[in-house]
Design a protein around this nucleic acid. Structure first.
Length: 202
DNA sequence: CCCTCGATCAGCT
DNA sequence: GCTGATCGAGGGA
């Protein structure tokens, strides 16, 4: 289980990159599901026009971003989808990493049931809405500590072969901040959402 | 392959 | 009343 000192660091870009290859574990209502993170985006806080916390804006929804690191920020997007973020950095520095895609490992039958999909194809956990749905992560989990048995991130000896970097997806409203290279993903991984094009980072 | 469109609600104006 | 850190279905090339 990743400890507080993984999340409570000043550089959200480093954390977003290092989350690639880590494993999300949920055991809600006794149902175990795990998936390896293959795509993330960094949201850099009050100076980042794409972030909900841009300009230091606080609402009931974003309040958790201003809290301590290592907690879940799950918000409702387009009124339908529940997007899972991990809060980073110190209290009052409202940064987070969005989990955009993952590769299923354990509990695929439960993921199929939660998503209503018939087959375990690449769309099962492709895209942030699908990741949350498959793993059972909902807005009610906002504020949940990620240092808990039933919901946490863990590491194994997996080493990502090649990491790609690109601008973030769906943030055109953010002006020139939409061009910042804050999206990280594993090269050639079929679970990655959106465009697979980007620059080789490592 | 590409495009458009509807779903549905928190937060802002 | 409008927009958004989305998704999947449907239609055309």
């Amino acid at each position: 289980m990743l400890p507080m000192n993984f999340y409570n660091r000043p550089d959200v870009l480093t954390i977003a990159r290092e989350l690639l290859g880590k494993i999300i574990v949920t055991r809600f209502d006794g149902i175990l599901t795990t998936a390896r993170i293959v795509e993330t985006e960094a949201y850099a806080g009050i100076t980042d026009r794409a972030a909900h916390s841009y300009g230091g804006r606080r609402t009931n929804r974003t309040e958790i971003m201003f809290g301590e690191a290592g907690r879940a920020y799950v918000y409702l997007c387009y009124g339908i989808h529940q997007l899972f973020n991990i809060v980073t950095n110190e209290k009052d520095i409202p940064q987070a990493v969005l989990i955009r895609a993952a590769e299923p490992i354990e509990g695929i039958p439960a993921m199929l049931q939660r998503t209503g999909k018939k087959n375990a194809d690449f769309t099962l956990t492709r895209g942030p809405g699908n990741v949350s749905k498959a793993l059972g992560i909902r807005t009610a989990h906002t504020g949940h500590s990620l240092m808990a048995d039933e919901f946490h991130i863990t590491a194994d000896n997996y080493m990502p072969a090649r990491i790609m970097i690109s601008p973030r997806i769906g943030v055109d409203y953010a002006g020139e901040d939409a061009l910042l290279p804050y999206r990280f993903f594993l090269k050639d991984n079929r679970y990655v959402s959106g465009k697979m094009s980007g620059n080789i980072y490592l």
